[in-house]
Amino acid sequence: MPMIEIDNLVRKFGEFAAVDGVSFSVERGTVLGFLGPNGAGKSTTMKVITGYLTPTAGRVEVCGHDVVGDAIAAKARIGYLPEGAPAYPDMTPLGYLEFIADARGLKGAARRGRIAAAVDKVALGSVLTQPIETLSKGFKRRVGLAQAIVHDPDVLILDEPTDGLDPNQKHQVRTLIQEMAPSKAIIISTHILEEVEAVCQRALIIARGRVVAEGAPTARGTWQFGEHEAEPGRLDAVFRRITTGNGAAADDGRTGTPTGTKGASA
């Protein structure tokens, strides 16, 4: 059974459909990458999965729980890092994690153990008692990651987890995601295409609220998005081709004339 199942999700803001008929599912052990231009609907999709926004139409299930009808059960199984890793600036990371653990119903030894494990995983130990507002961007992001994993969720939704981090920090976060991947279903959104190659088993390219291409690595070490195949390190050319140049592909998938097969890396 897929851990995350999305069927024909539509989310409108007024007349504007930020997400317009998106369907996909994610199994345990999979890291799914969301790619797409800014404003494509990646964050909105994540906000619906996590229950922050209600869907206009369609169905979203997390571990078999409908995110609208059975919201609390679904939310209990999700760890969520919102874009920009917001946190309460006056709190210390420790106080913040304790609050999240309490709100998620962790108690006693399990609570202490889970907090210690999360702190250890993201290497927060040195700043535990400093107010979050005084921390560097990298540490703030780690605080956000720690609160997302403190209850050891089955499903992780990470909105641009490495945005604004330095190369070493990016590497740490990617390593962390890879470590957790086998036991969880994870969705990350990113603008960094090399990140998709580094941590994802699958990727969706989203544009104008629709999934315009789905990709996966091939046995040859390349990534295949529909007719487009990308050599290692050359995903960005395919990305540009799918999201801008090729109107037919962007409309509704691949009904138009296939152009540039394997041409992306040429």
Partner: peptide, 14 residues
């Protein structure tokens, strides 16, 4: 303003 409302409303709390 701080965006923490997104965390708050995605916690498993009614």
């Amino acid at each position: 303003k701080a965006g923490t409302v997104e965390l708050l409303l995605t916690l498993p709390i009614g």
